[in-house]
Amino acid sequence: MNIFRFAGDMTHLISILILLLKIYATKSCAGISLKTQELYALVFLTRYLDLFTDYVSLYNSVMKIVFIASSLAIVWCMRRHPLVRRSYDKDLDTFRHQYVVLACFVLALVLHERFTFQEVFWAFSIYLEAVAILPQLVLLQRSGNVDNLTGQYVLFLGAYRGLYIINWIYRYFTEDHFARWIACVSGLIQTALYADFFYYYYLSRIKQDTIMRL
C-alpha cells in the first residue's frame, strides 16, 4: 500500500469522524443529507460482500467493518435519535435518490467484470459511490450558509477521491498491475463532481466574504 492510498483512506475516515463528531457534539444533523448517508451505507454494504469470502489484510477487513458500522450509525442517528432527527432538513433534502439507485443497478447489470452476485453488486457499489454525494451537494447549495463542520466533511471526502486518483497513477508506474477500469472511470467522474462543486461553491463563498468585508 502506498502513501497516497493510505492518506486517501485516512481522509475518508476523518470525513466520517467529522460527521459523527458534529452529530454527537451538537445533537444536530442540520445541513447533512440523509439520502447521501443512506446511499453510502448501501455502497459499503454491497461492496464489502466479500468481507467473509476474500481476505486481503487485517487493515482492509477492519476498515471495511468501520465503514459499514459508521455509515449505519449515522443513518440510525438521523432517522431514530430523538434529538438529532428533529434537526434534519427534510424539505431541503429533495434529491430523487431512488432513480439514481435504479440507474446504477441497471448499469451494473450491463457493465460488470463477471456476471456473478458479488461482481454485479461490486460494480453497483462503485457506480453508486460516484453519485452518492449529489443529494449532499444539492442540499448544500439550497441551504446557502453551511456550518464549518459540514463544509469540512465534503472537503475531506473530496481530498479522499483526489488522493485515490494519485494512488492509481502511482500504482500504474510502480507496480505490474493497474487498477480496475470500472473503479477508475467511476472514480474520475466522482472526483470531477467534487472539483466542479468546490470550484463554484468556494468561489462564491470567497466572493461573498469579499462583499461582506466591503
Binding site: 500500500m1 489484510s57 498491475h177 487498477a179 473503479a183
Partner: peptide
C-alpha cells in the same frame, strides 16, 4: 504486460 489488480482497495 500489466494485469489488473485484485480488489485490494476500499
Amino acid at each position: 504486460h500489466k494485469e489488473e489488480t485484485t480488489k485490494d482497495e476500499l
